[in-house]
């Protein structure tokens, strides 16, 4: 069984995004970029599936600029078998990404596609379910636990009320949540080995997908700032402020 994992190169989660002064977007020059943390969880899950004998081949895909190759290398160093890099400098929307991924799924024939539940840059949370709909596949989003039982997949999901388990016919799409696993760090020998693993070079044009954006970004602004507060000396003062100044208790 083949497992496909799409990954995105994003602003590192430890870096606070800065809005450009001309309001055209977020400043991404000279900042640390990393694999989207949810995608690390997806890669880890795929590698574990291979280690346990559930998966026979693991393929990592990234759609993005030249440096997205580094993100693919990271996934290969974590243990994925081979990569596909669909190179574009456009900031593609989830719909376009899902369409390219559908074409890749049609060509590669994986039985499971594991994606992050959201990318921490644009926070759309849309690509996984969009891909599932385009493929007419079932989905298990926000996965906390994944288990393959014969021809079906059991996915325990993190939902607003607690946890929910669904059973999916394969093939299926899964999106990962934070508690699914703890991604490994790639070891030095594995980083060296990853350099020899193949990466196919593609472009969106190879898949015949129209990637024109549907949303026009009119401007990107700073969020409303909170005004600085005060420190209180003790609990009595805190209670007094909350009662008599803020009126919230």
């Amino acid at each position: 069984m083949k497992v496909l994992v799409p990954v995105k190169r994003v602003l590192d989660y430890n870096v606070k995004a800065r809005v450009k002064s001309d309001q055209s977007g977020v400043d991404l020059s000279n900042v640390k970029m990393s694999m989207n943390p949810f995608d690390e969880i997806s890669v880890e899950e795929a590698v574990r599936m291979q280690e346990s004998g559930t998966a026979s081949e693991t393929i990592v895909v990234s759609i993005g600029p030249a440096r997205a190759r580094e993100t693919i290398r990271t996934a290969l160093a974590m243990g994925m078998d081979r990569g596909i890099h669909v190179q574009t400098d456009e900031d593609l929307e989830p719909l376009a990404v899902a369409k390219i991924l559908k074409a890749i799924v049609d060509a590669e024939g994986p039985e499971i596609v594991i994606l992050g539940k959201q990318a921490i840059d644009n926070d759309y949370g849309a690509t996984g379910p969009m891909l599932a709909a385009l493929l007419d596949w079932p989905q298990g989003t926000f996965a906390n636990t994944i288990e393959k039982n014969g021809a079906s997949l059991s996915v325990k999901r993190e939902v607003d009320g607690g946890l929910q388990t669904v059973k999916l016919e394969l093939p299926a799409v899964v999106t990962t949540d934070l508690r699914l696993n703890e991604p490994r760090y790639a070891s030095l020998p594995n980083i060296m080995r990853a350099k020899k693993k193949p990466i196919d070079a593609k472009t969106p044009g190879d898949y015949g997908v129209d990637t024109a954006p549907r949303l026009k970004v009119l401007k990107v602004t700073e969020p409303p700032a909170r005004k600085a507060g005060i420190k209180v000396e003790n609990v009595a003062m805190l209670v007094d402020k909350l009662k008599n100044e803020a009126g919230v208790i």
Partner: peptide, 15 residues
């Protein structure tokens, strides 16, 4: 809509 953990607000027009 907030992006980047709410550190930026995107004003978007849908076509």
């Amino acid at each position: 809509r907030p992006i980047y953990a709410g550190n930026a607000m995107a004003h978007v027009q849908s076509s």
